[in-house]
Design a protein around this nucleic acid. Structure first.
Length: 261
DNA sequence: ATGGCGTACACCGTACGA
């Protein structure tokens, strides 16, 4: 079973690229982030013609997630369950889940945070804590769970071009890394890192300053598996090819191979 | 590593991204 993630930076602007990638890679599941489209405007028909079911949870202009799959999901959840007297964590459409058999895939687009002194950075850290709290409340011990998407946090210095400069930014700030560590401590294994020890392997490059050709990038998109999933993961790869196409997303897809399903 | 790119929305500039 192949599980992929891709921040497409507008599913409508990137439709041709995504369809081509599905045709060549044929993942069983593709999690999209930053779809930037309301559900009624989502190009479901094009994906259906490619053989994929679509479940989407989006909004106009910003954010938005979707899960495409060759098999219909057994269950779907859009956003977090409502909780009384707390922040509405579904105001921005950033999280959905799909279950296939006993495997649940959580697709998340974590907030960027803008700058360290911004209230958006506080929101980012709180969102990450909320995600951890929700995981604690939702899943029993040893479930088969994948948490994937655009996390907007680089785990280690080897995941960042020029880490000294980026440690003062929201992507690699010690507070963001601490929140990421806390999230992982729920019981996740970084599936890319499980199969690749080397640094300099990125999933995002700035559009400006020829960043891609210089490999000035960040590893901020992730596929994490709970221990039972990680034990059955045989490969996890970043595919740089879509980033080299004309008019690409600034993120490129990655895909994990599981020996289940 | 800086702010030089790209997308959406809705007016021809602004918000936002990482």
């Amino acid at each position: 079973m192949k599980i992929a993630t891709w921040n497409v930076n507008s599913v409508r602007a990137r439709l041709g690229s995504v369809l081509l990638w599905l045709q060549t890679q044929r993942p069983d599941v593709l999690c999209l982030q930053e779809t930037k489209v309301e559900d009624t405007q989502f190009p479901k028909e094009a994906f259906r013609e490619m053989g994929y079911f679509t479940a989407c949870y989006g909004q106009k202009a910003y954010n938005g997630v979707a899960i495409l799959s060759l098999a219909p999901p057994d269950a779907l959840q859009f956003g977090f369950p409502k909780m009384e007297n707390t922040t509405d964590w579904n105001e921005q459409k950033r999280m959905m889940t799909a279950t296939f058999g006993n495997l649940t895939i959580i697709n998340v687009y974590l907030p960027n945070g803008e700058s360290v002194d911004s209230s958006k950075f506080e929101y980012k850290l709180n969102f990450m804590q909320h995600l951890r709290d929700w995981l604690d409340q939702t899943y029993p011990p040893n479930p088969s769970v994948i948490l994937t998407g655009d996390f907007n946090v680089a785990p280690e210095a080897i995941d960042v071009y020029a880490p000294e400069a980026w440690q003062n930014e929201v992507i690699f700030h010690p507070s963001a890394r601490q929140a990421l560590t806390h999230l992982a401590a729920w019981g996740f294994v970084d599936l890319f890192r499980k199969h690749h020890a080397e640094g300099g392997q990125y999933t995002w490059w700035d559009y400006r300053a020829l960043a891609f050709s210089r490999n000035w990038g960040l590893r901020i998109d992730h596929i994490w598996g709970s221990v039972p999933v990680a034990q059955q993961c045989s490969a996890c790869e970043i595919d740089r090819a879509p980033r080299a196409e004309p008019r690409p997303s600034d993120h490129t897809p990655m895909m994990a191979t599981l020996t289940i399903g």
